[in-house]
Design a protein around this nucleic acid. Structure first.
Length: 291
DNA sequence: TGCCCCCTGCAG
DNA sequence: CTGCAGGGGGCA
């Protein structure tokens, strides 16, 4: 489900609600969804919520004087984190009919966190690919899936030059496949990879090695534009994504190519968006203006 | 680098 | 019924 913008929306919608709260209980409905010693969580206090790439982290201060804990979430394709206020009171604005049914738990609920103030967090994951991992905070940097991650797109260390260097280690790869490689840069997934190529007017099948310097720069800008547009519109809700309030995001209404096969290109107005398969993933582009 | 796999459910 | 879905690890 979620790429960087979607996880960011979850983080933003969650942090004010649960920071400072204490975890009172945990119910694990699907054992494969949770790794770690659950009992350590009980009585711990939520210190900070953060995002790295597509991973959401919750730092915890344990009840006793043990090392600090971090709860890691990877939502993979269908994960959701839903906050339920005390007494299940909700004040959802906008268009309630467009938000998900918030009766929890539901069929996809895998883990439930109960907070001391009576609110709850539901980890839903229809396809069961996602996971929650409880580790000691000092172990974080040693985790393989963290170590391997490339630069964070909105970090100031992620410059045009860094992207170029990282990409050029993979000259024979098609551009769009490279954007999905989390070691090159972290956080871009299938939707925003297609959009980034569109923004840069680059055919997603183009090999990295044959990109001009100018194209590499356009790609850098195109990536940042795709991701920030994603955040601006609250993320992409194709099937599963909602933020922690159960609200959808509307980026796909503004997307240039993703999920628009057969439709007119919004830029050149001549081409029609096509869908191809690249590296096993659906890929969209305009054959007329992406060369 | 390119499959196959982990799962469930929906659209065609 | 088949194929496909915002991810990514493991295998040849």
């Amino acid at each position: 489900m979620p790429e960087l913008p979607e996880v960011e929306m979850i983080k933003l919608s969650l942090e004010k609600k649960i920071t400072g709260e204490v975890i009172k209980g945990v119910q694990i409905l699907n054992p494969k969804s949770f790794q770690g010693e659950v009992s350590y969580l009980l009585g711990s206090k939520i210190k900070k919520i953060w995002r790295r790439a597509k991973i959401l982290g919750i730092d915890l201060i344990p009840k006793s004087k043990k090392a600090e804990l971090t709860l890691l979430f990877h939502l993979k394709m269908s994960g959701q984190i839903i906050f339920q206020p005390k007494n299940n009171k909700r004040f959802i604005g906008g268009h309630p009919t467009l938000d998900m049914n918030l009766d929890m738990p539901n069929k996809s609920t895998r883990v439930i966190f109960e907070l001391a103030n009576g609110s709850k967090l539901f980890f839903n994951d229809q396809r069961k690919f996602g996971w929650i991992k409880l580790i000691q905070t000092p172990e974080l940097s040693g985790q393989d899936f963290i170590k391997k991650l490339g630069p964070e797109p909105f970090d100031k260390l992620f410059t045009n030059k860094v992207l170029k260097e990282n990409l050029l280690k993979h000259k024979s790869q098609p551009v769009k496949a490279a954007l999905l490689d989390q070691t090159i840069l972290a956080g871009v997934g299938n939707i925003y990879a297609s959009e980034a190529c569109f923004n840069a007017s680059i055919n997603p099948e183009t090999k990295i090695g044959s990109l001009t310097d100018l194209q590499l720069t356009s790609l850098y800008e195109g990536i940042l534009k795709a991701l920030s547009d994603g955040i601006k519109h609250g993320g992409s809700s194709k099937t599963h994504f909602v933020d922690s309030d159960g609200k959808k995001g509307y980026f796909l209404d503004y997307a240039f190519c993703y999920n628009r096969a057969g439709k007119d290109c919004k830029r050149c107005m001549i081409g029609k968006i096509v869908k191809i398969k690249l590296g096993g993933r659906g890929t969209f582009y305009c054959p007329n203006c992406q060369k």
